[in-house]
Amino acid sequence: MGDILLYKRGGPNVTDYLVKAIRRDDSGKGANRQLRREGKIPAVLYGNEDAPEKLVIETRDFERLLKQGALGKLVNVEFKAGRSKKAVPALLKEVQTEPLNGKVMHVDFQAVDMKQEIGTIVAIHYTGEERRVNDGSVIQPLLREVNVTCLPDRIPSFFEVDISGLQAGESITVSTLKPEEGVTIQTPAEEVLVTAALVHQEAEAETAEGAEAGAEDAGAEAGGEAKEDAGK
């Protein structure tokens, strides 16, 4: 079937992601199952000048690309069209996985116009936890990504959030993110990214609530017994 390759050329820009694929003629559940048995993934490129392109990519290489954070990013999809090659800038839009084992089943690429803004997601990377003072709290990330709009070649690789100074009971919101010019964050500014939860206090509160509830139950039971005795 020829070489099928996905890789990141190097450097911080999202346009460095390159997907080499081949066209496929067969479609349907049977053909897709056969591709997966061969270690390949069926894919579709939508939004191109022509009809949607049915493609094939290698499972192992694609999973490696996902680990590099390519989901929601701009990639160049390269494949043969007759005797020539086509390279189409596209958003890695959707990855369908098998619910039980997480195996990639299908991939959607969305061709883009480099002069028009698009909406996508950008991952949040939390750093500095090893430098935090141990105050009995536990870091709880509430968001792993945010929604943004920008030109395709301006998509950030990720947003970095330093949590080294986060103290017990404090939180960091989306409003603290500082995107580059041309990038607009669509996730509400007041949404909490990460918090330092007071685990011990929460546990004590739950224990106190449990004890109070137990006392109420015991009181109710004693009252019921007293009523029964009075009725005898």
Rank of each mutant, 00 (worst) to 15 (best):
V56S: 08
H106E: 07
S137R: 04
A70G: 02
V104L: 09
K85T: 15
I57R: 00
R60D: 12
P99N: 06
M114E: 02
Q116F: 02
L100Q: 12
E38N: 10
Q68H: 08
E129K: 09
E53Q: 13
E53M: 10
L92M: 15
T120D: 03
N76V: 07
Q34R: 15
D108Y: 07
K54Y: 11
A31W: 01
V104W: 10
L35R: 09
K85D: 09
E117Q: 12
Y46W: 14
K115Q: 10
N48G: 14
T127A: 07
D61N: 11
E117G: 04
E94K: 15
K40P: 00
T59S: 12
L66R: 08
Y126R: 01
V138A: 14
V133K: 13
V112C: 05
V122K: 00
Q110E: 12
D113K: 11
P52A: 02
E63R: 13
A70L: 10
V56I: 15
K86L: 15
M114V: 01
A123W: 04
I124V: 08
E98T: 08
Q96R: 14
A111F: 04
E53A: 14
G69I: 00
K93Y: 15
R60Q: 11
V104A: 06
A31P: 01
A123S: 11
A43Y: 06
A51D: 12
P42T: 07
G39H: 05
E49D: 14
E78P: 01
G102I: 07
H125Q: 12
P89T: 12
Q34N: 11
H125R: 15
A87P: 03
Q68M: 13
E129T: 09
E129R: 09
N134Q: 12
R33N: 12
R33W: 04
F109E: 05
R64N: 14
R36L: 02
R36Q: 07
G69C: 03
R83K: 13
N134Y: 08
